[in-house]
Amino acid sequence: MGAKFVSFCRLFLLIQKNHAKTAFLSKSDAFVNVLMMVVNNFSFIFMWWVIFENKGSINGWSFGEMALLFAVMNNAFAFFALFARGSQTLPEYIGNGSLDNFLTTPRNTLFMISVSESTVANWGDFITGFAMFFLSGYVSWNSFLLMLLSSFCAAIVTYAFRLMVSCLAFWAEDTQRLGDNIFMAFLTFAGQPASIFTGWYKILFLTVIPSGFISLYPVEIIKNFSWSALGWLLLGSFGFLFLSIKVFKFGLRRYTSGNRFGIR
């Protein structure tokens, strides 16, 4: 078991090294992309800064909480996009039959699919995430470690949700754009001050579209740590991960080969 885990880690690092090498073939292009991502993120943050400058606070959330949310969300998305973006390409793999290539490898199929894609521009999300944490006004060693842990859990939820949405392709055709839009809706939900979702909205926020595990619990944990909030976050993130793997395995049983010939 231990040796298998080490072997997976080695393979993961090797694949990531290759992604980085490919991305930095054109260094200037890679840097421009990272820079664009930072500009992109900060322009969005600027909009929210203006709103909070005008309105003061929204149902108890001020710009400090929003900055924590951006820190967690950007780090989570960076984790996802750099190390597991393949889950987003799954509908394409199913559609054109290239999933066969992954099925024939001796390694875990889902692992190989997940690490098959990486977007270098998302290093810009890490830059934004850490910058926002330091601008949030909640800076301490404790909160820094909690931010890292929360970001990791949020990344798991992001990955799990994207995987579930991508699995639609096992049952229907042409679901790439549909999946992208549902995923964007999920991120839009997550990018709002969690305090606006109360009552039924909150239940929806934590179940059907589990964005609350990216915004609500992480910010609460960093601000006022409580074991119960951490427990909910861990339960929610690993619960969704477990569910998404089940959905993937269930969908995979329906998959019929595209008869594509190729070796990976």
Partner: peptide, 18 residues
């Protein structure tokens, strides 16, 4: 291409709702 169309519409509705 109903998949594309419904995805866009769903996103718009969720955006308006949010």
């Amino acid at each position: 291409n109903k998949g594309n169309l419904s995805g866009g519409l769903l996103f718009l509705i969720i955006l308006l709702f949010t």
